[in-house]
Amino acid sequence: MNFQESKLTLTSGTTIFFNTDGLTEQQASGVYYGEILPKVFYENSRLSPQLIIRAVCEDFRRFNNGSLQGTDDITCLVMQLN
């Protein structure tokens, strides 16, 4: 895999959400979770990383008919600058 290196200066209060494709490509009734995720993230981005993760997980569970398990592995990580 070729990734390009670049530098970015982050300001205090920046929150970054990392995830694998298992999360965004999970489908339910023809909708990808990737279409819903940004909204959930923005709504909760002021919370602590643990709470953001919990909020996303709960939202995903509702989206995915009550299960946290997807068709692919799901990993997500939140990094927040204080």
């Binding site: 990383p49 993760i53 997980c57 946290l68 592995d73 927040q80």
Partner: peptide, 12 residues
């Protein structure tokens, strides 16, 4: 210092 993390992992 100055950065906090949280992660979630669930295998398929």
């Amino acid at each position: 210092k100055g950065i906090s993390f949280a992660a979630h992992y669930h295998p398929a």
